[in-house]
């Protein structure tokens, strides 16, 4: 009897240890954390601002030890590697998602990039909601877990200038009055935001390096924060290129005179003339100053609820 009792006790301990090991293996042990970023539009329709924002978010995740997967339309959102991802970020771009599947025991985050025609019914069921736009964060009621995604850029290597244009004009929003100003400069190059984003990283770098000034015109979407600084602007600054962009108070506060700012089309012309009349050295120095300010002050964490 005593021996049987001891055997049962021994087996019980074995089972208990097996169970403990099982729970640990199932829930805790992981070679590497991973995140899947799903974007609700086709690759070729992503504009420069969205691309730069997503690249920055992915950079932060990597810095925090995550392996990053990214997927866009056409549909391949739920591939094998996604099964074990700890974090799922649904980037709600300019189209809604039509096939959302959320995973229990993972962080499921909805990120709204810019204010667009959204339907409130889309924003249910996630664990967290995020945006770089305070207007979006204020749009929804307090029942949702909202978090602000800070501005910033991937810390790039400084691009060595290789001048071929005076002005590289990248526009997310077509505004002929601004374009007419730019095209008056002899050596200019134009890109729509989508077209620029569709280039390879190397091609984008080459184009940025070729320009003495880079004009980034973001336009304003209905509902945007008036102080929203586009990720594309940060991206250009991070490459160490002289940026000329729409005036925002937040840009003045962050970068002072190290970034060239314009308001109207006439302003743009004046700003470009002043910038190009500066020596190359002075202009490049401003760009380096802006870059340093950016890299010294930008955040290192991704979302504060992700430990």
């Amino acid at each position: 009897m005593k021996k049987t009792g001891k055997k049962i006790f021994f087996l019980g301990i074995l089972l208990l240890l097996f169970a403990v090991g099982f729970l640990y293996g199932k829930n805790y042990y992981q070679p590497q954390k991973s995140v899947v970023m799903r974007v609700s539009m086709e690759r070729e329709k992503i504009d420069y601002d969205l691309l730069a924002g997503m690249n920055y978010m992915q950079y932060l995740f990597r810095q925090n030890g995550y392996k990053v997967y990214e997927t866009k339309y056409p549909g391949n959102f739920y591939f094998n590697e996604a099964d074990n991802a700890d974090v799922n970020v649904f980037v709600r771009a300019y189209n809604p998602f039509l096939d959302i599947r959320l995973k229990k025991n993972a962080f499921n985050i909805c990120y709204l990039h810019r204010f667009t025609d959204v339907h409130e019914v889309e924003f249910n069921g996630y664990d967290y909601y995020s945006s770089a736009q305070h207007t979006f964060i204020n749009f929804f009621d307090k029942r949702r877990q909202m978090t602000y995604f800070q501005g910033g850029a991937v810390p790039h290597e400084v691009l060595k200038p290789n001048y071929q244009y005076d002005v590289l004009y990248i526009y997310e929003y077509y505004a002929p009055e601004y374009e007419n100003i730019v095209t008056q400069f002899n050596k200019h190059k134009l890109y729509g935001g989508m077209g620029f984003a569709a280039l390879s990283e190397k091609e984008r770098q080459d184009e940025l390096a070729r320009a003495k000034t880079v004009v980034y015109f973001s336009g304003f979407f209905k509902g945007d924060d008036t102080n929203y600084i586009p990720y594309a602007a940060y991206d250009i600054i991070s490459y160490g290129r002289p940026l000329v962009t729409n005036l925002r108070e937040s840009l003045v506060q962050k970068f002072g005179s190290d970034v060239y700012l314009f308001d109207t089309a006439d302003d743009l012309g004046k700003v470009l003339v002043d910038a190009l009349n500066e020596s190359d050295k002075a202009r490049e120095q401003r760009a380096q100053n802006a870059r340093q300010k950016l890299l010294n002050t930008q955040e290192k964490t991704v979302f504060d609820f992700i430990k």
Binding site: I13, F18, A19, G21, F22, L23, G25, Y29, N84, K103
Partner: peptide, 26 residues
């Protein structure tokens, strides 16, 4: 006895890990 305990723990951990790997939530 302690060796058996260790084997049970490792076996449990391995099973749990592969159980998760075969998890198909989508």
């Amino acid at each position: 006895k302690y060796l058996f305990f260790l084997i049970a723990l490792i076996a449990g951990g391995t099973s749990g890990y592969f159980f998760r790997q075969n998890n198909k939530p989508y």
